[in-house]
Simulated scan of single mutants.
Amino acid sequence: MNSLNKITPLRFQKCIRKPIEAYLFIDPLCKDCWAIEPIIQKLMLEYGKYFTLRHILTGKIQPNTSHKWNKPANIRFVWEKSVPKYKFACEKTINIKHSPSPYTASIAIKAAELQGRKAGSKFLRKFQEALFLKQTEEIEEELLLKCAQKSGIDLEEFQKDIHSASATKAFQCDLKFSTEMHITEIPSLVFFHANSDEEGVKISGIYSYDVYVQVLKDIIKKELNPEPLPNFDSFLRMYDFFSTQEIAIIYSISYAEAERELKKLMLRGRVIPIPTDTEIYWRYLP
């Protein structure tokens, strides 16, 4: 069940120019955490000037143990009704034989983040693509290195950091923060006003895009001016690999309209289709 509730602020950073701090609590092996990405991308493109975003890896994960989640808390809604989840296609099963353990995947993401928050986000994206779309048959270490290479981070640094105390400590900080924020459902998105001691707002689960925009407005207490979305060509150049459904969500158009525009770009030699069992993905050709 989705839930929204108020929680007490806790800060990682003190000097932030943007008025809102946002923390996205995820499990890198969770399909719903993959499904929320187009909504987050759209929010960053239109309202990124108002908030910073940090991915927090959560869960009761220890090496060589099973991965278990607490049951979602029974919390009343801030809004009277919830909005149905976006449907986002991915493979129904994960090839566990070739997939890193939750612990190893989390440490790898933290190692990538040591090269910068954007580097970590790019690595996470490439990792989820490989995991949920079955684009690879590499074993654990080969998969992580391939994702690191595709995300453009320094491979030598990544290989050192993945075995470092710094990556392990960063992951432990995420787990501690998740506990303090009472995260019981993933994905969860928590917003704080950076210059206020008011309570933050936690959104558990996946809601319609308008809900997230309204939360930003409620926290800042004024109307927000969205940035215009980039044209298709600019967006595709930025993200490199995407699905028809992602385009439909980000540009608020129908699936058929998104598919039609992408086919036009295919005829121009700008993208190529990558079919999967559940969805058609597209790769940008520079």
Rank of each mutant, 00 (worst) to 15 (best):
N5D: 15
I7P: 01
P9E: 00
I16Y: 03
I16C: 02
K18N: 04
I20F: 02
D27R: 14
K31N: 14
A35E: 14
Q41D: 13
L43R: 10
L43K: 08
E46M: 10
G48R: 04
L53V: 02
I56L: 12
T58N: 14
K60H: 08
P63L: 02
N64R: 13
N64W: 11
T65D: 01
H67K: 15
W69D: 03
N70H: 02
K71F: 10
K71G: 06
F77V: 04
K81C: 07
S82D: 07
V83W: 06
P84I: 03
Y86A: 07
Y86T: 04
C90M: 01
K92F: 12
K92V: 07
I96T: 11
I96A: 09
K97C: 14
S106F: 14
I109R: 03
I109K: 02
A111L: 05
A111W: 04
G116V: 00
K118F: 03
A119S: 10
S121P: 04
S121D: 09
K122A: 10
K122N: 13
K126Y: 12
F127S: 00
F127C: 10
L131H: 05
F132K: 08
F132G: 01
L133F: 05
Q135W: 01
Q135K: 12
T136A: 05
E137Y: 12
E137F: 12
E140M: 13
E141G: 00
E142Y: 07
L145K: 07
K146H: 11
C147G: 12
A148L: 05
Q149I: 02
K150M: 12
G152C: 14
D154W: 01
L155F: 00
E157M: 10
F158D: 01
F158E: 02
Q159H: 06
Q159G: 05
K160A: 13
D161I: 09
H163Y: 15
S164K: 13
A165P: 02
T168N: 14
K169T: 13
F171G: 06
F171D: 09
Q172P: 07
C173V: 14
D174C: 11
L175I: 11
K176D: 13
M181H: 11
H182G: 04
S188F: 02
L189M: 08
F192Q: 00
H193P: 04
H193C: 08
H193A: 08
K202S: 14
G205H: 06
I206R: 11
Y207F: 13
Y207K: 07
D210F: 07
V213F: 08
V215S: 02
L216W: 02
K217H: 09
D218E: 03
I219V: 06
K222F: 06
N225F: 10
P226K: 01
P228T: 04
L229P: 01
P230W: 08
N231R: 04
D233V: 11
F235I: 11
R237D: 14
S243I: 10
Q245I: 14
A248E: 05
Y251I: 10
I253F: 04
S254H: 00
E257N: 15
E259S: 11
R260S: 14
R260M: 11
E261L: 15
K264S: 10
L267G: 02
L267S: 03
R268A: 14
V271T: 05
I272A: 13
I272L: 13
P273H: 05
P275T: 01
P275C: 06
T278H: 09
E279K: 09
I280E: 06
Y281E: 07
W282V: 01
W282Y: 13
L285W: 05
